[in-house]
């Protein structure tokens, strides 16, 4: 009886269902590997990966912190720059028409292609990597925030005009709240892109030594054909991405739960 009610709770289902899928997938992976005696240098078993992860946790975790630092710095830069640019773009049609193509240019240029250039220009490694990752994460913030700042209910705009709201009042009380759902949508896309940008930039830069991130761990493991170590590093990157996304989803929920349709039910 109790169990049935618990399973009906949508919050429980939301956690339990994907968890079960994960267990089934990992379980069958383990079984297939063991049953067909797949060699460990091709596909390691989940148990194998876990053992490697625990054995190398110190170095992997240090690398994770490096990658995470770059990701978060880049994400922060992207949010600040993206929002600033969005505000600039909505100031007038002419500004938008003349600048938006360059924002798109930013989006379509592959980071792998410009990373070497940035690494030459910016000498110290961390800022260079942050710049690369920021470029990747920037566009969704700009485009979503612009869309949001424009998506104002025309009736409310009339109401503000009727009450002689100043430009500033209209911005703070109307445009910014209207833009929030779109902005948060941008955050969710952008946080994942910041991580991808950070890892890709690390690959291209190939920075080694004590300040190396997870990408370097993967490269090294590849050279040594240490496949379980590669998987362990991959697992950490994936987990970080999911954690970042969950943080953004939680932030969205906190800000929109009272009023926006996306956070209902």
């Amino acid at each position: 009886m109790m169990r049935k009610e618990l399973l009906k709770d949508p919050r429980v289902v939301r956690i339990v269902a994907p968890f079960l899928v994960g267990i089934v997938l990992v379980g069958s992976w383990q079984i297939v590997c063991v049953a067909f005696k797949v060699p460990v240098y091709l596909v390691p078993t989940p148990l194998n990966i876990l053992q490697t992860l625990i054995a190398n946790f110190g170095s992997l975790f240090a690398a994770l912190l490096v990658t995470l630092k770059i990701t978060l710095l880049a994400f922060l830069c992207a949010v600040v720059l993206g929002v600033a640019m969005a505000f600039l773009l909505v100031q007038g049609r002419i500004i938008e028409v003349s600048l938006f193509p360059y924002a798109i240019l930013l989006q379509v240029t592959p980071v792998v292609a410009i990373a070497p250039l940035i690494i030459i220009w910016v000498k110290s490694p961390t800022p260079a990597l942050v710049v690369c990752a920021t470029l990747v994460a920037l566009f969704p913030i700009i485009s979503n925030t612009v869309l949001g700042l424009r998506s104002v209910n025309p009736g409310l705009l009339n109401l503000f005009k009727l009450n002689r709201a100043t430009r500033w009042q209209t911005l703070v009380r109307l445009r910014i709240p209207s833009a929030l759902p779109y902005f948060f949508g941008g955050l969710r896309i952008s946080c994942g892109l910041a991580l991808i940008g950070a890892v890709v930039a690390e690959f291209v830069a190939g920075t080694g030594g004590s300040g190396a991130g997870l990408a370097y761990q993967i490269l090294q493991a590849g050279f040594q054909l240490n496949i379980p170590l590669m998987f362990a590093a991959l697992l950490l990157i994936a987990t970080t991405g999911v954690a970042l996304f969950s943080c953004m989803a939680w932030l969205t929920h906190l800000s929109l739960r009272h009023w926006h349709e996306s956070e209902m039910g």
Partner: peptide, 28 residues
């Protein structure tokens, strides 16, 4: 003083009822 009521309720969905009603007073 003048006020207008529109075809639709035109309320700010992010603000509670009291804040919506207070809006014109806040603005002036």
């Amino acid at each position: 003083s003048m006020a207008m009521v529109f075809q639709e309720a035109t309320l700010m969905p992010w603000a509670d009822v009291a804040s919506n009603v207070r809006l014109p007073l806040d603005l002036c």
